[in-house]
């Protein structure tokens, strides 16, 4: 189990990286933490001719907050994000979901952006990004564009990223008072990819009823997906037990989950309902609380 040969490029700044990506197009893969890519390369499920290692690119490791947005650069490690007081305070869902990713040594190398760009339909962080109504900041030699998380994931391990482009950051709006978030999952073994996971954000309106709600699922389709029927069911409700149950019951509507050795499609639909109920209950409780206790 050894990778095929490739050319290794280690750009020092973003322009150099973008030039290299432009030159090699679809032949190139970006290497950040490598905790998924190198695994695929070892199994020769990925054999890029060129690997562009962005770990030495200056300026990509910033984790910053301004104007109500939290921005994580392409080489911000998952462990850094998970332990960041800024993330804990302003995007606790990202921290909560992040703590479920593999194991500490993997997270200390793996990056948040890398997980998003890798677009594993079972992974936690893309799902959290989706539930947080996050954005993906994409750069190429011809400029920068921002893609809504809703539009970024297009299929299993595929995104709307074009050859020559790379993700330079992800951004999430900060979670404000009155909004509660939660991430729950079922994994067959601690640290494994979940069979199914649910990320939820719930906002309490001033009238005490549930306002904006976003529910995103992993392990429930070919990409991280929203449970829109469940969102609709909860929005405007009183957020009580019955409302949550009604929303949870609708969480599997329209899902076409993948099936693998860890669970059938039916089981994933079942888990989508169960976990949506649990995630919503927690998120609603947290929305009612002063702080988002994680």
């Amino acid at each position: 189990m050894k990778p095929a040969a490739f050319a290794y490029l280690a750009p020092r700044d973003l322009d150099e990286a973008l030039d290299q990506l432009a030159e090699h197009g679809a032949d190139a893969r970006v290497l950040a933490g490598g905790q998924s890519l190198v695994r695929l390369m070892n199994a020769r499920l990925a054999s890029p001719a060129v690997v562009v290692d962005i770990n030495r690119v200056a300026g990509l490791d910033a984790l910053e907050r301004h104007n109500g947005t939290l921005r994580l650069g392409a080489t911000v490690r998952q462990r850094t994000s998970e332990l960041s007081p800024d993330v804990a305070a302003h995007a606790p869902l990202l921290a909560e979901a992040g703590a479920h990713v593999a194991h500490a040594p993997v997270r200390s190398r793996g990056t948040v952006v890398g997980s998003v760009a890798f677009a594993d339909p079972s992974a936690e962080l893309p799902t959290a990004l989706l539930a947080l109504d996050g954005r993906v900041v994409v750069r190429s030699r011809s400029g920068e564009r921002t893609v809504e998380a809703d539009d970024f994931f297009t299929g299993p391990f595929t995104t709307s990223l074009a050859p020559g482009e790379m993700v330079v950051a992800v951004e999430v709006p900060v979670t404000t008072a009155g909004t509660g978030t939660a991430f729950v999952e079922v994994a067959r073994r601690h640290g494994d990819l979940p069979v199914c996971g649910v990320a939820a954000t719930v906002t309490r309106g001033d009238d005490g009823r549930v306002g904006a709600t976003r529910i995103a699922l992993c392990g429930a389709g070919e990409r991280p997906v929203r449970a829109r029927a469940a969102e609709d069911a909860l929005t405007g409700s009183d957020g009580g037990t019955d409302a949550v149950a009604e929303a949870a019951a609708r969480a599997s509507e329209g899902l076409s989950p993948i099936a693998d050795c860890h669970g059938s499609a039916d089981f994933r639909r079942h888990l989508a309902r169960v976990l949506t109920g649990r995630a919503l209950r927690t998120a609603i409780d947290r929305a009612a609380g002063e702080a988002n206790d994680v």
Partner: peptide, 26 residues
């Protein structure tokens, strides 16, 4: 060689790292 078992863990700049998921060139 898939980063699952951790047997190959070494310290890289002090951090526990799976040496099967890092290229020496890096």
């Amino acid at each position: 060689e898939q980063g699952v078992c951790g047997a190959c863990t070494v310290l890289v700049d002090g951090a526990a790292t799976r040496s099967c998921l890092v290229f020496a060139a890096q």
